[in-house]
Every structure is written in C-alpha cells, then in structure tokens.
C-alpha cells in the first residue's frame, strides 16, 4: 500500500473529522436531519477541502513559513502567525469561486449543493484541515490527499448519521432526548465504531 493511499485512509477513517477530532460539528449536527442535505454537504466538503488544503499549503510555504523570505535576504523572517487570517481569506475565496463555477457550468449540482457552500466558509473542519497541514508538515501531494481524505471522512460520517436519524424520526424518545440529545448519543455510538479503525491502524 502506498504512503499516500495510507494517508487517505488514515485521514478519512482513523482521524475522522467529526467523530474523532470533534471538528465541524455545528454543520454536522444541523444538516444531518435529512439524507439529501447531508449528502449535499458531504460532497461540498470533499470539494472545498480537497482544494483549500493544497492551496493553503502553497501560500504557506511560499510566503509565510519561517525562512520563506530567505531569497530576499530575510532568512529570519517568520510570519507563520499570519497563517490563520490568510487561510480564512483563501477558504472564503475558494468557496465563492466554486459557487460561481458550479452556477455557470453545472446548475443542477449548484441547485443541489449550492446552498451549503457559503456555510462552509466558517466551518471549523475546513480551517482545521489547513492548520493540521501546517502542524504536521505535509508536502503538497500529501496536503491534497489529506484534504480529499478528510472531506471523504466527513461526507461518509454525515451521510451515515443522517440515515440513522431518518430512521429514528418516528421513534418514541423521551422529550428531553429528542433532537439534539439523541444526535449526540448517536454520534457517540458512531464514534465508538470508528475508534475500531484506530485499533486496526495501530495493529498494522
């Protein structure tokens, strides 16, 4: 198994964004009431993460990382603290460009997924993808794979949760547990299932 494929599996299942790392939970819970919405969100997630993580990698290594300006005679310059603002800017721009591209060339997809795109600008999982990329010193190829993998993991998890919640729609739950409470418990159970992947990865 190649390293990149392994990274993909790792980011999609072992370090699953919502279930293991608690990232992107706001949208994860809010949009998992209906399966169609969940799938739309998942697809949008894969696209945005697969694009923004490598793009931010380029910007970070070219402009912000310590030593990036050594060619200009400033080897000590470290602007990595600006990463946060730069990343958010890039994410917001990518989301808008993606929305316009879809609107122009694939209106059907835009109608299905378009409403979810603006939500993704302030989604923790996407920003976290870029921050993890910096923290773990990924290369460009690794960033792209990591972004796609994390997006896929999110998509799988949110679609599963939505499917379960749809089945529970008519369940007779105690009043206090209805909705949010039950969603948390379900997420916990799914998280328990996903932690089996971590065991498999550790055993390898």
């Amino acid at each position: 198994m190649s390293d990149l494929w392994q990274l993909f599996l790792l980011s999609a299942f072992v370090d699953n964004m919502p279930l293991t790392l608690f990232l992107g939970l706001c949208t994860f819970l809010a949009l998992s009431k209906k399966l169609e919405a969940a799938i739309g969100l998942g697809v949008a997630m894969i696209g945005v993460m697969g694009l923004t993580v490598p793009l931010n990698h380029l910007i970070y290594t070219a402009l912000l990382a310590p030593g990036a300006w050594s060619w200009a005679g400033l080897p000590d310059l470290d602007m990595s603290y600006l990463a946060l603002i730069a990343f958010i800017g890039v994410i917001a721009a990518v989301v808008q460009v993606l929305e316009m591209l879809l609107d122009r060339y694939a209106p059907a997809i835009h109608a299905a997924f378009g409403v979810f795109l603006p939500l993704l600008t302030v989604q923790c999982a996407i920003l976290a993808g870029s921050l993890f990329m910096v923290e773990r010193h990924y290369s460009l190829a690794q960033s792209a794979v990591f972004g796609l993998g994390s997006g896929t993991g999110f998509a799988v998890a949110v679609a599963m949760l939505a499917a379960i919640r749809t089945r529970l729609a008519y369940a007779d739950l105690p009043a206090g547990l209805r909705g949010l409470g039950m969603a948390f418990v379900l997420t916990g159970l799914m998280s328990l299932g996903f932690s089996a992947f971590a065991q498999m990865a550790a055993a390898q």
């Binding site: 279930l19 293991t20 790392l21 608690f22 105690p174 009043a175 206090g176 547990l177 949010l180 409470g181 039950m182 969603a183 948390f184 418990v185 997420t187 916990g188 159970l189 998280s191 328990l192 932690s195």
Partner: peptide
C-alpha cells in the same frame, strides 16, 4: 472521543 458525545448528550437530556 465517544465518551464526550455521550456525556454531552446526557447533559442535554438532563437540562431539557
């Protein structure tokens, strides 16, 4: 990770 979800779920239940 799962325990955090369970605890928050139970907390929500208790409060509600």
């Amino acid at each position: 990770a799962p325990s955090a979800f369970f605890l928050l779920g139970l907390l929500v239940w208790a409060v509600r």
